[in-house]
Amino acid sequence: MMITLRKLPLAVAVAAGVMSAQAMAVDFHGYARSGIGWTGSGGEQQCFQTTGAQSKYRLGNECETYAELKLGQEVWKEGDKSFYFDTNVAYSVAQQNDWEATDPAFREANVQGKNLIEWLPGSTIWAGKRFYQRHDVHMIDFYYWDISGPGAGLENIDVGFGKLSLAATRSSEAGGSSSFASNNIYDYTNETANDVFDVRLAQMEINPGGTLELGVDYGRANLRDNYRLVDGASKDGWLFTAEHTQSVLKGFNKFVVQYATDSMTSQGKGLSQGSGVAFDNEKFAYNINNNGHMLRILDHGAISMGDNWDMMYVGMYQDINWDNDNGTKWWTVGIRPMYKWTPIMSTVMEIGYDNVESQRTGDKNNQYKITLAQQWQAGDSIWSRPAIRVFATYAKWDEKWGYDYTGNADNNANFGKAVPADFNGGSFGRGDSDEWTFGAQMEIWW
């Protein structure tokens, strides 16, 4: 008995050590931004985005507190085989008060198993909700290839000249389909599951310092038995992507060409959309029709120009041509140079221009935006974070068209359509004006 009692403290210590080691193995990653800002004409900070554009130049032009908190852990490992559990909870508030209630979004919860298939060394099996191989332009917060959501897949299969990845994910639309009631009355209240099937071939070395990635995505509306879509709904579509990445000037340049059809055009990033119906009456549900095509040509990157200068840049042309004439032509160009006074202090400027032409009206909206920021960051790279910055932003815009969301679809035949700025004596778009804002912001990723 005495021997047992003497061994007990040692056993407890060993158990505590094991539990401590396991606790220390938890990975904590994430992203956050928050700050305070004012508008020159009075009131809180207002942000500037061109009507019809899918993004905006973000430096000194973000008006919310946003965070993603990721917890993950390698829960099992034997040799080169392992299982990893990953989670991500995100939230966004308007940064107007101390207490701002919000419903967090559970954006990731997945398990990734590496090297589980003997004859596919280096590959990963995964299932669950996941940010899946996302491609974006940081300076405009624009995701041009992103099929994230609940799904499953097999990735990084070594095929000799590259890595092959296969995945299936889902994005549902509210009110996407109906069941038959009586007297030809349909009640569009059932969600429609939109499935996306993704095939990618990446890391193909085609020139010194250059790699090529090719991808095909097929999206479709997956209806339940005895349900139907509204007439004209976009049932399926394709997205084709080619991306060349070149190492240059201690950074990279990415050149991207994408072509999409029908349900893959509205978001243009790989998620299927077009079966959703915002109104019970299918007579007024025309606005979900996105049959047509999209072409996107994009070049972006980040480079170092000597010891003291870094720069991000982007140039993009996007043409969404829809059968219902509600598409757009959008082109944007911008730069973000950074001058480093010390390894932790810099001055950053961002200059961006957007131009969006309405397919329906032929009119154009444009905006110039310039931001000057003094910044303190954890390192001497344009990617170094955390960063604390004080900024001043000036924007000038001239908008000739907007979307008509007055009333509702039952009493407005133009609901959701592009109209000229002065349509029917109204005021659509943001008109011709300018404004400036100033404030302070922190940004961090880890």
Rank of each mutant, 00 (worst) to 15 (best):
232 G>D: 14
296 R>H: 04
251 G>D: 03
152 A>V: 14
112 Q>H: 03
268 G>D: 10
136 D>A: 02
36 I>F: 05
322 W>C: 09
248 V>I: 08
13 A>V: 02
391 F>C: 00
287 N>K: 05
23 A>V: 04
22 Q>H: 12
387 A>T: 12
268 G>C: 11
276 G>D: 07
38 W>L: 12
23 A>T: 04
223 L>M: 14
291 N>T: 14
228 R>S: 07
6 R>L: 07
381 S>N: 13
256 V>I: 15
252 F>Y: 08
111 V>M: 00
230 V>G: 11
75 V>G: 10
102 T>I: 02
232 G>V: 03
21 A>V: 06
242 A>T: 06
94 A>T: 05
357 E>K: 03
58 R>H: 08
224 R>S: 12
270 G>W: 12
395 A>T: 02
314 V>M: 03
230 V>L: 05
208 P>T: 08
275 S>A: 15
254 K>M: 01
359 Q>P: 10
210 G>D: 11
202 A>V: 06
21 A>T: 14
124 T>P: 03
189 T>I: 07
193 A>V: 09
18 V>L: 02
316 M>I: 04
260 A>D: 00
252 F>V: 07
35 G>D: 03
393 T>N: 00
309 W>C: 02
344 I>N: 06
257 V>I: 01
278 A>T: 07
344 I>F: 09
282 E>K: 05
42 G>D: 02
330 W>L: 04
89 V>M: 06
283 K>N: 09
43 G>S: 02
255 F>Y: 00
285 A>D: 06
269 K>R: 01
296 R>C: 05
103 D>A: 12
268 G>S: 01
17 G>C: 12
192 T>P: 13
90 A>V: 02
265 T>P: 15
221 A>V: 04
402 G>C: 00
113 G>C: 06
269 K>I: 05
318 Q>H: 08
312 M>I: 03
303 I>S: 15
442 M>I: 13
16 A>V: 06
240 F>L: 15
12 V>I: 07
224 R>H: 09
58 R>S: 09
35 G>S: 08
440 A>D: 03
278 A>V: 07
16 A>T: 06
386 P>Q: 03
224 R>C: 05
334 G>S: 08
30 G>C: 04
277 V>I: 09
236 D>N: 04
207 N>T: 15
124 T>I: 03
16 A>E: 10
397 W>C: 13
